[in-house]
Design a protein around this nucleic acid. Structure first.
Lengths: 203, 203, 203, 203
DNA sequence: TATGAATGAGGATTCATTCAT
DNA sequence: TATGAATGAATCCTCATTCAT
């Protein structure tokens, strides 16, 4: 029982640290974020950070990894719930990404301040990002196979999608509504995917 | 005292420093780039950096500002040369951005490590980026007026375009050919812009 | 954040730092004193200095402030112990200043290298110095009221007294005995204070 | 002729530099005075400073040496003009020091920021200061021989005199009149010198 | 496990000094 | 002689990390 309580406490503390760090990394450059500030904001001692994370970089990438993991998981859940056509799947995925970006706007900002460098945790984050792209790619590929989509380079398009969300938020076309944005991106992408091939072929 | 010394206008030396800095900022995180390395790579003394740039952050944003300025200028030149329709203008602009991104890949990478914060030079860079977006926006708007394009939110689309280029390079769909990428983006964008409205109308 | 950490109150450590700094500031010009030397001499890490003092200047003025505080306190104690006439009080005060100057010769030397500038801690030091002068002034004024002293400008005379001690040490009339010096200054001052009025009156 | 003109020009330039430096050294701590500021204030190039002075410390002590030299010279002139008794000589000397301190208040302030260290020029300044003290000492000694003064330690008293002036200015008993100050110091010193002995002897 | 005082490596920045012009 | 752009040694200070409690 003692153990279990502890475990719960730990999870919460770890989560607190991650969310405090997310906010700070989203607002300031990596080197301007002080671990003492993270600790204070998380309500823990500075030394405690080192119990949960190897070092500053590890904390940084953990923020990203956690965020992406939860995004990918959400999309997986969405898609599993109801099996639908590629079009609907793509739409839902885009909607999910947009929703996530708005809800956890920090995370999308964190990526702006990305420190380049190598580390195991960074690799794990890149993998997770890759997973997201692959998920999108599989939807597009599925659509192509089904004859619904046409795309000579679906691997490029898969990468575009998170990029579109990011661009919109970055340029901050101020106070844009998440729903409006979702619809715009969906139409932008699906039009490009559905028409281009057929059109060319038709003409 | 207001502006320190500055304006010594040894343009060559300034350019050397900027290009050395561009490479380093593109390869390492901001806080891992040592000014001593920049100086060495630029073939000047450490103190010299401070004659041409106020501090590390100023140097950083100067790299970005210079890059964007030259990109915007190139596009302006392109467009002025031959007056053409919105479609051709958009194609050329995309081609130019892709060309630039490949040629000066550093610059696109530098933005990854963007330190958030305020400073005059950062403002100037943001303005220049805005200028690029506005240029694209004006082409799209022109197309809409001419009835060639349809887009309910052209300001979003304008922002997407550099984002598409960035995504492609970021995901490094390895060794992709600049020409292939240009064509893919062009088709992606123009299809989305030309078909969407008509389609809706037709159906 | 206002006052940083501070107040950790390892009084001993703080005292070690102050006394190490006092010696160094007394022997070298402000800009020649390295904080690394202070740290080493105090037996602490360089960073520790910044836990106890805001910066080099703060450390410098803290040395002075502490010294003056203890001098003023000593004089206060002396005077409180036994209530005596102004003459005895003045004598004891002078004796105390001389004793202090010899014992803590560093401090008197530190003032030589005084960096001008503004800072809260500097203000506090100036106040403490003012306190010393005022203490002497009150003794003289008391004496004037009692008809023992005569002085048309006691506020000037009050300032002279530490100046006399300082001059003697500065010119280093070598190896002078503190007792001899005390007696000389006492006679110098008291004669000037006691005779001048009477003389005038007599003549 | 060319040479002579040059010579004149040089003297002037050197003087400009010295007086610019005097003001700055009087207002700021040694390490806060930038040679670039001195150069600007003197209306010369930074490199020019090094034609007239070996380095910053040399410039600093040259300011002091020059000031003291001119003070000592003035006193010599005063004393030579009319041969008088020790009392009058002492009075005139004090008056001259006070006058000088007020006129060239900078110089007296410069000494506050004195950097400790060894150098030939510093030795020369110390000698000159010694010369001033010795001058005063000789007057006192003369007075003792003549039976006008009494002092068991005239070498101490000689040192006191510039110290008294300094104290008065340092404590800045605000806006004090030079004449008032002169008279106060003169009475203070002469009383101490004339009465003490006689008194003792008398009683 | 939790803490935060202590640490010291590390690096941005300054500025006296040089030297080519 | 006069200059001021260039230099890099010198040093303050920061802050991630450790470790005794």
């Amino acid at each position: 029982m003692g153990e279990k309580t502890m475990q719960v406490t730990d999870k919460q503390k770890r989560a607190n640290i991650l969310s405090a760090a997310a906010v700070l990394f989203a607002t300031q450059a990596f080197h301007k974020v002080l671990l003492s500030d993270v600790a204070e904001k998380a309500g823990v001692g500075k030394g405690t950070l080192y119990i949960y994370f190897k070092n500053k970089e590890d904390l940084y990438f953990s923020v990203l990894l956690d965020g992406f993991s939860s995004l990918v998981e959400r999309i997986h859940l969405q898609l599993d719930e109801t099996t639908q056509g590629p079009m609907e799947n793509l739409e839902q995925t885009i909607r999910e990404i947009v929703r996530f970006a708005f809800q956890d706007r920090h995370l999308f900002n964190v990526m702006r301040t990305l420190p380049i460098g190598m580390s195991i945790i960074r690799e794990r984050w890149l993998e997770k990002r890759r997973e997201l792209i692959d998920l999108i790619l599989s939807i597009i590929t599925q659509g192509i196979k089904a004859g619904v989509f046409y795309d000579p380079h679906p691997e490029l398009t898969a990468g575009y999608i998170p990029g579109l969300v990011r661009s919109a938020l970055l340029n901050g076309t101020d106070g844009i509504d998440p729903d409006v944005l979702s619809r715009h991106i969906i139409r932008f992408v699906t039009t490009a995917l559905t028409q281009s091939g057929e059109l060319k072929a038709t003409l």
